[in-house]
């Protein structure tokens, strides 16, 4: 038998999904994911995911706004 490409399992409830995710994470799998029709709170910790990096993008977006709004005045000579 050839090596399977992937393994998939379906669960009825969020708690069962979470328990399964906990087990998979404990086994040390790297390429795996949980799919759900709504965000399950607490799943990030169970999956061992760190904080989302969206905040940094937002922060630098704000920095860009600040530079465009005030930076030209503060850091550059005006006509």
């Amino acid at each position: 038998m050839s090596k399977p490409f992937a393994i998939m399992a379906e669960y009825e409830t969020p708690a069962e999904t979470m328990a399964a995710a906990k087990k998979v994470h404990g086994e040390g799998y790297q390429k795996w994911d949980v799919h759900s029709p709504f965000p399950i709170h607490g799943m990030d910790e169970v999956m061992g995911l760190d904080n989302a990096k969206v905040g940094w993008f937002t922060f630098f977006g704000g920095g860009d706004w600040f530079y465009n709004g005030y930076g030209h005045d503060l850091f550059h000579e005006q006509i």
């Binding site: 994911d33 965000p39 799943m43 995911l49 989302a52």
Partner: peptide, 9 residues
């Protein structure tokens, strides 16, 4: 696709 890694972001 409803991935939890997407939901997180």
């Amino acid at each position: 696709i409803g991935s939890n890694r997407h939901w997180r972001n």
